[in-house]
Design a protein around this nucleic acid. Structure first.
Length: 584
DNA sequence: GCCGTTTTCGGCCCGACTGTTTTCAGTCG
């Protein structure tokens, strides 16, 4: 039994309680409990982990876990089953929880469909829609029936969440269209896209009108070109867009002076807000998308931006990427009081001085060393490292000892011509046995060695861990390239004991890559947070195969920020000489 | 079900939109 499985069970309980119309605060307690277990070390055997806590009876030390949940988790871990859960299921069909996945069907409607129409799963629901039975129920009508039918079709046709590399550009495109309108004073992408969550269920846009401007033209522009109009009221509209197919986009229009509170509200996350609002109440304040107001008389505080928003709550500013209730609220409060370490000083674009992980025509890149150097310089960087592939990666051409010598001459010439420091490097392949694709005598002559896996992703966990541990122990390796090898939406992370390997990197000084290829985002924010706890260094890498991909920097930085990456642990957030000194 | 710098009891975030309603419940974020 892993913490993740415990969390899933607690969520299942929460959903069942919700369906049964239980007290919503009890439902939330189970959700909070689930989050607490998700935040534990994923390895149940880890020190301070799940099994140790069960053994020592210290589950209730976890915030959000009280006596009730602790007892259930103990039973679950010891026996693998939970009587309480079985009881909750006794009078419900197995497909009950699928019903609330249909848009427009919540717990109340789902329960009535189960009780009054004997609907047991999605197929049943589809049938009663077809037979026109739903409209006969009190409180339902023709429109609800139609809506439910469409909701089922949508559920079947699309996976719910899309990768950020699809959603973020779509959101920015939509925003640009709105910002071009004359009545618009300000606008921003909010929601999980702004928080840099790697998958998103929808897009959220916030727009502030100029003084006296009309809302209708903005709504019109937003809805124009939509694949489907979901809803439209006086201040908000929801549509489905064509690309990514059927993705929902929500627009919220606010009047002058409400932008900061609205942006904060629609950025989320839900968990962050729930805790924030409870804290606000203790201060005698209430939060909404319109204002921060005093409970006693409803008077409003003036909030110009999100820094002021947090200041009104006696907190230090929390970056959007951190707003997940992963401990950031407590750290922010402590920081404002001048106590403790405070929030991480998360990396920003201006901190990054060097462009790492760059491919050129010497292997599978589209452009020359000079092209890449000019692109790096244009992006405001002061150095870059050329790191082409070796033979095992399967590219042609590729780097050999001899070609590295030839490349050195070109690098020296480019450095002179372009006026930017260019380091010599390689992305060396990790071979089956954990040895590297170039001999140590060659590697030691280079400034930067990135070791990456490109083959045999399918080895079992033990063998893969051993293979990587050997490679990462090579004294010439400075960076571990795209550690998990995952591709969002198409390839799962390689199976390995990541915690062990991150601890190894912390010990040897090898930086783990935060690879900014939009489909990779590897390491993930989740693992980067773990890298932080063990003290591993991080490389903000573009893995650029063309000069335009210098912009992968933004993807890497967003992911790194979400992963609580402090700037002092980022190896390329320093000038080239300082970077090289890190391994001396 | 959880929690405590007012509390071991009594709280627990807030508002828009929709549909089917004659005044509001359900859903969503």
């Amino acid at each position: 039994m892993t913490p993740k499985e415990v969390a899933q069970t607690l969520r299942e309980i929460a959903q069942l309680l919700l369906l049964k119309g239980e007290n919503t605060f009890r439902v939330r307690a189970y959700e909070t409990g689930a989050e607490a277990f998700e935040a534990l070390s994923p390895d149940p055997m880890a020190p301070g982990g799940l099994l140790e806590r069960v053994r020592t009876g210290t589950l209730t030390d976890i915030s959000g876990v009280g006596k009730g949940i602790a007892e259930k988790v103990e039973e679950l871990v010891k026996t693998g089953t939970l009587k309480y859960l079985d009881e909750l299921w006794t009078d419900l069909p197995r497909g009950a929880l699928d019903l609330v996945r249909v848009q427009g069907v919540g717990p109340k409607k789902a329960l009535r469909l189960i009780r009054e129409l004997d609907v047991g799963n999605l197929e049943d629901l589809e049938r009663v829609v077809r037979e026109g039975k739903i409209r006969e129920l009190k409180g339902f009508g023709e429109k609800s029936e139609k809506q439910i039918g469409e909701g089922i079709a949508r559920l079947k046709s699309t996976s719910v969440r899309r990768p950020l590399w699809q959603t973020r550009p779509a959101a920015q495109k939509l925003l640009a269209k709105i910002l071009a309108l004359p009545g618009v004073h300000a606008g921003a992408v909010a929601g999980s896209v702004r928080r840099f969550a790697e998958t998103n269920g929808d897009l959220d846009l916030i727009v502030e009108l100029k003084e006296g401007a009309q809302v209708e033209p903005v709504m019109d522009a937003f809805c124009e070109g939509a694949k489907e109009l979901i809803g439209r009221g006086g201040t908000k509209a929801s549509i489905r867009i064509a690309e990514p197919e059927n993705l929902q986009a929500d627009l919220r229009v606010v009047s002058a002076g409400q932008f900061a509170t609205a942006l904060h509200h629609f950025t989320g996350s839900k968990q962050h807000h729930v805790k924030l609002r409870a804290h606000a109440r203790q201060l005698g304040l209430t939060l909404s998308e319109y204002a921060v107001a005093r409970l006693e008389d409803g008077s409003r505080l003036s909030i110009a931006d999100e820094t002021e928003f947090y200041a009104a709550l006696q907190m230090a500013y929390i970056a959007p990427e951190l707003r997940e209730d992963h401990g950031e609220i407590e750290l922010s409060l402590a920081q404002a009081r001048g106590e403790g370490p405070g929030l991480p000083q998360v990396i920003e674009r201006k901190d990054v001085r060097g462009l790492l992980h760059v491919h050129t025509k010497w292997s599978d890149g589209a452009h020359t060393i000079e092209d890449m150097a000019r692109a790096a310089k244009a992006a405001g960087l002061s150095w870059l490292a050329i790191t082409d592939h070796t033979v095992a990666a399967g590219t042609n051409p590729h780097m050999t000892a001899e070609r590295l010598g030839e490349q050195a001459k070109e690098i020296a010439a480019v450095q002179q011509a372009v006026g930017i420091r260019v380091l010599r490097g390689v992305e060396v392949d990790i071979l089956k046995d954990g040895s590297l694709d170039l001999p140590d005598e060659v590697l030691k002559t280079l400034d930067v060695v990135i070791a990456s896996l490109h083959t045999r992703h399918g080895l079992d966990e033990a063998a893969q861990t051993e293979r990587l541990a050997k490679a990462l122990s090579n004294p010439h390796v400075k960076i571990w390239g795209h550690p998990t090898g995952r591709l969002l939406g198409s390839r799962e992370p390689t199976s390995m004991r990541m915690e062990e390997l991150l601890a190894l990197c912390a010990k040897t000084g090898v930086a783990v890559e935060c690879n900014g290829t939009p489909e990779r985002l590897d390491l993930s924010a989740e693992w980067l947070r773990h890298a932080r706890t063990v003290g591993a260094r991080v490389s903000i890498s573009v893995d650029a195969h063309a000069k335009e991909q210098v912009e992968n920097l933004d993807w890497a930085i967003g992911t790194a920020r979400r992963g609580w990456t402090d700037r002092e642990r980022v190896v390329n957030a320093r000038e080239a000489d300082e970077f090289l000194k890190l391994w001396q």
